[in-house]
Design a protein around this nucleic acid. Sequence first.
RNA 1: GGUUCCGUAGCUCAGCUGGAUAGAGCAACAGCCUUCUAAGCUGUAGGUCGAAGGUUCGAAUCCUUCCGGAAUCACCA
Length: 593
Amino acid sequence: MQRIEELLTGTVIKGAAQRWQADISREQVQLQKTKKDFEGDLTLVVFPLMRHARKSPEETARELGTWLESELSEVSSFNVIKGFLNIVISTAYWQQVIAHVAEEKNYGLTEPGPGAPLMMVEYSSPNTNKPLHLGHIRNNLLGYSISRILEANGNKVIKVNLVNDRGIHICKSMLAWQKYGNGETPESSRKKGDKLVGDYYVKFDQEYKKQVRELTEGGMDRKKAEETAPLIREAREMLLKWEADDPEVRHLWETMNGWVYDGFDTTYQRMGVSFDKMYYESETYKLGRELVREGLKKGVLEQEEDGSVWADLTDRKLDRKLLLRSDGTSVYMTQDIGTAHQRFSEYPIEEHIYVVGNEQNYHFQVLAHVLDKLGFEWYDKLYHLSYGMVELPEGKMKSREGTVVDADDLMDEMIRTARQMSDELGKLEGYGEEEKQVIYRQIGMGALKYFILKVDPKKNMLFDPKESIDFNGNTGPFIQYTYARIRSVLRSAGEYDSVIPRVDLNEKETDVIRLVHDFPVTVGTAAREHNPSVIANFMYDLAKEFNQFYHDHSILSAEDPDIRLFRIHLSRIIGDIIERGMGLLGIEVPERM
RNA sequence: GGUUCCGUAGCUCAGCUGGAUAGAGCAACAGCCUUCUAAGCUGUAGGUCGAAGGUUCGAAUCCUUCCGGAAUCACCA
């Protein structure tokens, strides 16, 4: 089925050629949705065509309107206001849209075929010392959602997670546990593993600061004190032992990481995110060194007298970037070069998306340039899905100052609020406790996820813990509620004929169908722009529009049986789209709420 | 200081590949449940789109400068 926009554009081009002997491009045909206050479905802006028509805007518009009306049965009428040609699309066309949607299995989505392009999405990438907080929630939800959106556009997607499980910071929590832990385990203290390890990381910091303070009070300067405090020296020793494969250190490391992974898994599961492949920095941190050395040989990188290796990007308006330290060890960038190379060798990757905060914009810019310098032609297949910080009213979240919003706590609170609201409204009276739990979780998580995903990723966003996340208005539960009402209607409808009758459409019905018609385009836009908020905002518009229809017109008690049947089908279709669209955001929809 | 991003209603956000009178939600106020779930619907009020120039028939949208905020520019990860 050809979309009406295509049809109109083609016909306008044909008309321009026939009537004015003008060769106009598709870009010059500016079609947009008609504003609510005017009559029509689509509006053609004729200003760009005036120099071809050599007539006034009004005359140009009228001429094209007449032409379109005569050429296309889909155009039922038109009106002209200034340079705007408002086109009214026929009921038959909208009917056809509905028939088409009903036939298609997963309307709006494109299944990945056998030759589907492969996309790799790296997200989450946690640090094993730090329990997940609200910032990570944004990362995880974005990563998961963009994966779903890419899949919905016919791509094969591999979701990967690169865990930061090594380095001096890990040794800090290990050391603190050895010194102050008294053998505490997640079992013994009934604490989540990631929280337990995180607590020792904090403990290290406290004790270390104490030592530094004692040293400075004894007359040592601050920098020296920070360098020579016993704890930091021990941590460094431990790192050396770790790198030397010391069995005792390695054993402790594995044990504590195991606790953390158990904790993370629980949180991931609650968030509803998953990965196809895990990478660990302890296994990848040596990658990239060889590539850098080769680059040095090829002469695209340079070496200082002290042995350190650099990429000179000053000709590309960037700085020089260190790739190997003077002692030959690598930095973060080196590892990223290595892992990217490894992945591109292993898979035929069409696009590699890194879901990482905007604090690393510079890093990824440099990464692409260095890869280009090294001669990897796939350097431009990296895409940094950069997102802004989640800020609190008092500013940025800082783990050390305890101003973080913990992921688990927040999820608990959302679900608790969902329960409280539901109980107050008495919505789920008579349901079993287990069934209720599922719904509370769906609603609480829906509110949280929608809250995060409706915002353009690149923007910083504000979260005020004092004002809990809303459940009314432009929210996840609003959309879920619309779905639940549709399901409720369909349950009451019982058996109904599968053939959709052709009936006249009222205004609200047409409004809703127009949005149905836009759904596939929206899914495409979200993928192209790597932006789930496009879907979120569309879902809101759709739910809003349907609610108006629902309010103004009765579905089941429509007098005309054909209209009744049509509205049942229309509702079912909207419900399906809501379910599918929310699925792209990782949000479940409840049958009732 | 250099680079990048952001600045739209009291608050949180849409709109930004230029198009008609700048839209939602929250909060405030006023209404709508004997009728498919009121977590809904309707209305009122709320805006010099950070500021000034420029390009254009037309600028919240593009360009320049300035102001405000954020991030980043480590032999940290």
